[in-house]
Amino acid sequence: MPPESWASSPATRRSMLGNKRADTKPEVALRSALHADGYRFCKDHRIDLGTIKVRPDIVFTRAKVAIFVDGCYWHSCPEHGTQPKANAEFWASKLARNVERDREQAEALTRAGWKVQRLWEHVPLDEALAIVAALLADRGH
């Protein structure tokens, strides 16, 4: 393990490096359901907003709708988010920065005319699908 590592142990480091940035199970399930219902979209599509670059999980470019499927741990879900005990200061700062980045990105997208929807990973699939469908209907898609 590198001496400057953020991980509290080699096992923790291996576990954390194994976490995906894209194609998580909740995200893939939502994409599959949307596709089965006839929706077409881009996945992990980069949107350049000046100095801010955003990669929503699901993007409807014509409707200008950006969907994020947020993990409870990484995005500090008020219902299920937890704070690690090992290396607590590092992780508290990291998770707080994730939340701040989420807010900054949502504000930048909104200013650029996009509609942003953040869904927690624990939202039932049928509920998430209904939220996205309603949002697209509101945007004339």
Score class of each variant (00 low, 15 high):
residue 82 T to R: 15
residue 82 T to E: 14
residue 82 T to P: 00
residue 82 T to G: 06
residue 82 T to S: 11
residue 83 Q to H: 08
residue 83 Q to M: 14
residue 83 Q to C: 02
residue 83 Q to V: 09
residue 84 P to F: 10
residue 84 P to H: 11
residue 84 P to A: 06
residue 85 K to L: 06
residue 85 K to H: 13
residue 85 K to V: 04
residue 85 K to C: 02
residue 85 K to A: 14
residue 85 K to D: 12
residue 86 A to H: 13
residue 87 N to C: 09
residue 87 N to H: 14
residue 87 N to K: 15
residue 89 E to V: 10
residue 90 F to G: 13
residue 90 F to W: 10
residue 90 F to A: 13
residue 90 F to I: 09
residue 90 F to S: 12
residue 91 W to K: 05
residue 91 W to G: 05
residue 92 A to V: 12
residue 92 A to R: 15
residue 92 A to G: 07
residue 93 S to V: 04
residue 93 S to K: 15
residue 94 K to C: 13
residue 95 L to K: 11
residue 96 A to K: 14
residue 96 A to W: 00
residue 97 R to E: 12
residue 98 N to P: 12
residue 98 N to S: 10
residue 98 N to L: 13
residue 99 V to N: 06
residue 99 V to W: 06
residue 100 E to Y: 15
residue 101 R to F: 03
residue 101 R to I: 03
residue 102 D to K: 01
residue 102 D to C: 05
residue 103 R to Q: 11
residue 103 R to G: 00
residue 103 R to V: 07
residue 103 R to Y: 07
residue 104 E to S: 11
residue 105 Q to S: 09
residue 105 Q to Y: 03
residue 107 E to W: 00
residue 107 E to F: 04
residue 108 A to F: 02
residue 108 A to W: 04
residue 109 L to A: 01
residue 109 L to R: 01
residue 109 L to F: 08
residue 110 T to D: 09
residue 110 T to M: 03
residue 111 R to H: 06
residue 111 R to T: 07
residue 112 A to S: 15
residue 113 G to D: 09
residue 113 G to M: 03
residue 113 G to K: 08
residue 113 G to Q: 05
residue 114 W to S: 08
residue 114 W to G: 04
residue 114 W to M: 08
residue 115 K to P: 00
residue 115 K to H: 08
residue 116 V to T: 06
residue 116 V to A: 04
residue 116 V to D: 00
residue 116 V to G: 01
residue 117 Q to N: 02
residue 117 Q to A: 14
residue 118 R to F: 07
residue 120 W to H: 15
residue 120 W to F: 10
residue 121 E to K: 02
residue 122 H to D: 04
residue 124 P to Y: 06
residue 124 P to S: 03
residue 124 P to F: 05
residue 126 D to T: 10
residue 126 D to S: 11
residue 126 D to Y: 11
residue 126 D to V: 07
residue 126 D to I: 02
residue 127 E to W: 01
residue 127 E to F: 00
residue 128 A to M: 10
residue 129 L to S: 09
residue 129 L to Q: 10
residue 129 L to P: 08
residue 129 L to H: 14
residue 130 A to M: 11
residue 130 A to V: 05
residue 131 I to S: 11
residue 131 I to R: 15
residue 132 V to C: 08
residue 132 V to I: 01
residue 132 V to R: 07
residue 132 V to W: 07
residue 133 A to V: 00
residue 133 A to M: 02
residue 134 A to C: 05
residue 134 A to K: 14
residue 134 A to D: 15
residue 135 L to R: 07
residue 135 L to M: 15
residue 135 L to A: 02
residue 137 A to I: 06
residue 137 A to V: 04
residue 138 D to K: 13
